[in-house]
Every structure is written in C-alpha cells, then in structure tokens.
Design a protein around this nucleic acid. Sequence first.
DNA 1: GCCGACGATGCAATCGCTTGCAAGGCGATC
DNA 2: GATCGCCTTGCAAGCGATTGCATCGTCGGC
Lengths: 344, 344
Amino acid sequence: MTDTGGQRRNATLADIAAELDLHPSTVSRALDPAKAAMVKAPTRRRIVETADRLGYRPNLAAKGLKEGRTATIAVIAADLGNPWVTPIIHGLTSRMTSSGSVPVIAETGDDSSTLAALLDHMVARRVDAIVVLAARRADREIIEATSRLVPTVVAARPLEDIGVPVVRERSRLGGRLLAEHFAELGHRRVAQLRGPEEVLNFPNRAEGFSARASEMGLEEATPRLVAARPTIDEGSRLMDELLDRGPLPTAVFAHNDLLAVGAVAALRRRAQSVPDDVSVAGYNDMPLTEHLDPALTTVRFPGWQVGHEAATVALSLAAGEPRFGDVALDPEFVPRRSTAPPRE
Amino acid sequence: MTDTGGQRRNATLADIAAELDLHPSTVSRALDPAKAAMVKAPTRRRIVETADRLGYRPNLAAKGLKEGRTATIAVIAADLGNPWVTPIIHGLTSRMTSSGSVPVIAETGDDSSTLAALLDHMVARRVDAIVVLAARRADREIIEATSRLVPTVVAARPLEDIGVPVVRERSRLGGRLLAEHFAELGHRRVAQLRGPEEVLNFPNRAEGFSARASEMGLEEATPRLVAARPTIDEGSRLMDELLDRGPLPTAVFAHNDLLAVGAVAALRRRAQSVPDDVSVAGYNDMPLTEHLDPALTTVRFPGWQVGHEAATVALSLAAGEPRFGDVALDPEFVPRRSTAPPRE
DNA sequence: GCCGACGATGCAATCGCTTGCAAGGCGATC
DNA sequence: GATCGCCTTGCAAGCGATTGCATCGTCGGC
C-alpha cells in the first residue's frame, strides 16, 4: 500500500529550460512538431530527453488560455439515466476524441432553469462549442442567446425556427411509418400515448402518425393522453387511463420505448395480451428493445449517428467554419412481435 | 433565421474596469462573493451593473490556470455503449455537478494503450482528479503511475493491491448469492459463462460462486467458458459451445446481464426453454433487465451509488483531503423469472 | 577580408484572473 | 490638531504556454 498523498508538481517549460540553461520559448518550439525545425537538432534532442525524464506534460489549460480554445465541447443532456441517450453520447464521444477534443457532460433533468444555468456555466468555461440534447420548446430563446457567445448545436431533440444548426431525425416520417404498419395489419381503431409536447420529437411523431392514419382511414381514440415525462411509469399510467375510458383501441403507438414498456406492463396487469388483445409499438429502438418481452415493434432512432453528426457540426463550428444547413436523419421501421393483426 | 456566424468576444475584467475607470483587481474583488465586502457598496453596485450589462462571464480557464485547478474530473469508461455504465455515469455526474465540477468523459474500448493515452491526455488537461471505470488487470501500473501526478480513483471495476482508492461492489458476495439461489432451487449441475479475466469483477464473481457452490454440493460443468468481451454475442457463442459439449447443466450463471441475454437467445434458437429446461441468471441488473423476456434473475450492481461514491472520493482527493480506505458496496440478489427449479 | 543573410536562441508581451502588498484618504482618538 | 489605523483602491507579479521581434554568431559570397 504505497502512499498516494503527495502528488508531484507537474514540470513546466520553465523547469526544462532551467535544467538545460535555455529559454522556455526554445523549449516550447522544440516540443511543438510544427516548429521543431527551428531548433537545432542536438538541442532539440536534449530538450526532448529531459522533457520526458521530467515527465513533462504541457498544461492544456495554459495553452487554451493563450490560444483562446479549450478543446472541450459541452454536451447537455436531459436525463442521463434514459437509455435513449446512451448511443447519442457514444456517437458524440467517439467523433470528438478522434479529433482531440473531449466532451464535458451535464444534465438538466428537463428543467429549463437548470439548462440556463448550465449554458451559462459552459460559456464561462469557454468550451469551444455546445451540443444541446435537452432542448424543450421553451428553451429556444436562451439557446439562441447562448449561441451568440459560443457556437451551439441543437441535436436529437429539434427546435423549430431557431437560429442554430439542428441535427435531428425525421420524426414525422417515423410517425407515418407506424400508422402505415397499423393500417396494413388491419387495425381500425388506434391510440397514441404522447410524450411531453415540450419535446418537439413527440408532437412531430404524433403529427406524422395522425396525418397518415387519417389518410389510411384509421380512427384515433379520443382521450388525449399526454405523459408528463417519457418514462415507464408514465406509460403505465396513461395505459391505465386508456383502459378505464371506454372502448379499447386495438393498436397503440407509444411515443417512445419506455412509454411502450410501461404500457405493456399495464396491459399485462389487466390480463390483456400483447399483441393478441392490443398491439403496442414504441419508438427509438433503444438498446435491448429487441430482447424485451415481447420484442417491441418500434422505429429506430439513429442515436449514434445523431451524436456523430452533432459532434461533426460542433467541431466545424468551433473551427470557425461557416454554419451550414441542418442535418436530418431517417428513422427506420423495425417490426417485431408486439404488433399483430387485430383479433378476428 | 438570424445569422450566427459572428460570436461576440466575451467581456473581461479589464473591459469592465476600463468602462468604469477602475482597476481590474477591484472588479475581480467586487465580483467574488468572498471578497465583495472589501469593495465599497456603491462601487460594487456599479461594477455588478456594468458586468451584467456587458454579459460578463468569468473565464474559468484563466481562473483555473491561476488557481491550479480546473473544476473538471476525468471519467474514463471502457465502453459507453454498454448499458451497465449508464447508471454509473449518472451517479458520477449528479454528484459532481452538485459541487460545481464537471466530468469530461472518454472511452478506452477496453484497450490498454488507449487507456494509457487517455490518462496522459487527462494529466495534460490538469483535471482535478481521474475516475477510472475501465481498469483491467494489466493496467495497474499505469494507473498507479498516473496517480502520482493526479489524484486517481478506480471504480466499478476493481484492481487489487493497488495504491489508489477503489470503489467497488463485493463481487464475491454476488457470486455466492447466486450459488445459494441455484442450490436452494434444487439444481445440482451448474455452469458459468465467464466474463474476461482481465476485468476483476468477473473472476471475483466466479470465485464467490464456485466457493459457495462447492460448499453446497453443486457440481460445475467442465468446459471453462470465457467470453472475450462481455456482450450479447459472446453470451450466445458461449452458450452454443456449452450446448455442443456433452450434458447440459440445469442452471447457468452468466457473469453479466448481456451475456445472459445472449445465452437465453442461443437457448431459444435451440428450442430450449428458459427457465424450464435451463435456468439462466445474469448479473448487474442493468436498466430494463426486469422487462426482458424472460425477466432476468440477477444480482443488482449498485451502479448509481458506485458512481456517486467514486465522485465523492475523487472530489475529496482533489480538495487535498488525505486518502481514506476503499469503498465496497453490497450487491443485492434479485430473483425473477429466468430461474426455476430443475425439471422433475 | 568585409558585409549581408540566415540560422538558432533569447526577450518580452500576452491570454484573463487572482492576490499580497502598497498607497491614498478619511475618520477617530488623545 | 497631529497621529494612528482602517477602509478602499491601485499596482504588479504570476499561473504556463505561445509568438513576433530582437539579437547574436556564423557562414558564404565577392
């Protein structure tokens, strides 16, 4: 059990310079690949040698102060506990580290004032860019305001008419795909378990679904069921409400997989079979969805790609490249076992 | 569609000072709650007023350079795509932000040289502490070396005889709990699908399981099945191998839930029922495990708490408090439907 | 043999903020 | 009314690295 209390102070350019009786600037140049040629080879060798004898690590904070960049990008999520964000963060991280930047992560808990505080904090940190995964409708202005100070990207959860680049899925298309699926299976009476209206993906999915549903002659059950948060519990609650109110639709579109899982659980508790009594479809195809009971019919939200693209946009904005258009990625319909033709 | 190209330069202390014909140091004091009292009230008011008229945000990078701290803590995970890490990161983040620090996240892909490079990078960043979630046996030395430069904590995946604090679960206990469960159900012949030996949780779980199993008179099937990585695919592969080699055990302990999911899938493909033909237990109780098909018997790995504790230790080390002992958290047995008594 | 040029290194300012110390001004004390 | 001391503000150094410019020495050319 060695003692770890005493951390060694990190060596600085000045330390190396002093040791070799050189000037820090010479050491700086010798250690900068782009400028190493300016330093005579033997000197350079001595510098490099003492540098790693002393375990020199350049102080990126100092470098960042001088250069006005920090090589970090802020990522602001709504709820890190939601499996949905995992692939997004994964995609973001892998793109960023491949270019020497690093994500700093924070979480809003879907609270607008927390978001505001975090944005402020990230501005203070002088991150090179900010990726907002937690956007709600009401947050438009504050995000725009922030974007005037730091390049900002809105990703995963889109915002409309906003003056910052957006990386998003085509939510309406996803909704349409599910409406078609229900229609093709022969359902006539369908319902939606809606996610919070504040998160634009949900009303957009709803819109696509309703539009296509009515085109195809489907009837939507009346009670408008809106979840306070997109969670399993809320899915159960909405489904219970649906079960309590009059005639049950034969197919239900839950606006995300968690709501769908909750809905299935509620149906089970009321001795309804999925998909025999009621078909249930989710949305996102979050990890493990395929192994759920029953394997959930869903629409794949391209999370990894959204993260990857968002990072790409953020990095290029940070590099001062001009803003370019939004990125919209196609979701993909994934049929599984939780949907089936209606009884008889 | 407003133009976002031109970011405004952030105001500095000097800007405010110039505007009011004061010295930057006075402004600095006025804006520091701890020193605000040193500044005459009317002056302070004028300062605060122009500060937020100019949208002043202190440059944390500069502040960090001066103070020798960055208010960031590095978190190094093995695979951000693994649902297992989600709660850990969640716990870490929530603890950190509640104290003004922020996590920067990176991923090793379980590659030791990547880990080495990342540790180096984080040292260069002068993060206040490092939390390593990606430790493998072979990484002990490099982690110890790093810990001499930056306070370091190993969490989630433990390492033995290492000179840095460890926050871990009691893996042996978890293994024992499952052995007991199998014995109590009446199984006699059991098997393990092992995770990589390099990740100590797995051999420790194995050890606890085997020890208790032999105490209770269980017999372990012979082929030693070790996954190259703890993934669903590897679980299937190992299970196929087990199915191909001689007599099938009646209960299988997969070292994590992903392996278990893969094992269940493989059994299904071979027309074996879980739990009727074979009981399968996993480990971790990762999110959604309870909604899998079948609901997985498992041992709950206290991920959120491990993250939370690891952050606590990291923060206190960063604050210069002396190192204290390791933290070991108890896992909890969670019986569900994937295990049952053996046939007849 | 002298001068210009170039190659190698040093110097000093700078990024933005913090902080110990100095200094100026004022009220209080004797 | 002079002195002491406190209250408020200014000054300047310094955190660690970068970089334009100055400087010094040497080499080559004529």
